[in-house]
Simulated assay, not measured.
Amino acid sequence: MTIDLSRVYIERCNKETEEILEKESASFLNTSISYFKNHLNEFLYIQSPVFDEIKVDAISMEVDDVFGTYMALFGLKVQKKHTKTIKNFLEQHLHTNSIKNYSALFAGDEGLWEINLPLNFIEGFQEDMTIEQALFLTCDFIQKLVQQIEISE
């Protein structure tokens, strides 16, 4: 999957208030993912038409205040009946000996899965990668999850 960065919309936001701190250009994605460790009060909101291919409108990235892991948060537009497939995929594809601090909850009123994905536990993640590289890794992970859901139907 390729992400057309010319059509990406990015906001840096305050975690507590969700206030927009700054609208960023695509060049901000070249920033190290460790930016979030130094700005724990912020999250990055990223929107792209390309995300439709993986059944996602937008992806937010931040560092989890409790566990200190890098997180990708997104709504996955698939039906509730895929509970077992989604949870099995996350259990099998997140690699750690510690707590797998992901969450996957179905929001019936919105008709989508609200997923909080710890990037640290995805194969290939490195703390010295850029936000863009972490975004590509996240999209690839989501794409594989969607493919697994389609296979299970």
Rank of each mutant, 00 (worst) to 15 (best):
E11H: 05
E11Y: 04
E16T: 15
E18S: 08
E19S: 05
I20C: 05
I20R: 15
L21I: 15
E22N: 09
K23M: 05
S27P: 03
L29F: 09
L29V: 12
N30T: 12
T31N: 10
Y35L: 11
N38R: 15
N38S: 15
N38D: 14
N41W: 05
E42C: 07
F43D: 00
F43G: 01
F43Y: 15
L44I: 09
P49M: 13
D52M: 06
E53Q: 11
I54P: 00
K55C: 11
D57Q: 03
A58N: 06
S60F: 05
S60Q: 12
E62Q: 12
F67N: 00
G68H: 06
Y70T: 05
A72Q: 01
F74N: 01
F74C: 05
K77D: 12
K77Q: 08
K80M: 08
T83M: 15
T83I: 10
T83F: 11
K84C: 12
K84M: 08
I86V: 15
K87V: 11
L90E: 08
L90H: 02
E91V: 09
Q92F: 01
Q92G: 01
L94P: 00
I99F: 11
Y102R: 09
A104H: 02
F106E: 02
A107P: 02
D109F: 12
L112G: 01
W113Q: 07
L117Y: 10
I122E: 10
E123S: 15
F125S: 09
E127W: 10
I131D: 08
E132N: 10
E132P: 00
Q133L: 05
Q133I: 02
F136E: 12
C139E: 02
D140F: 06
D140P: 03
F141A: 10
F141C: 10
F141T: 07
I142V: 15
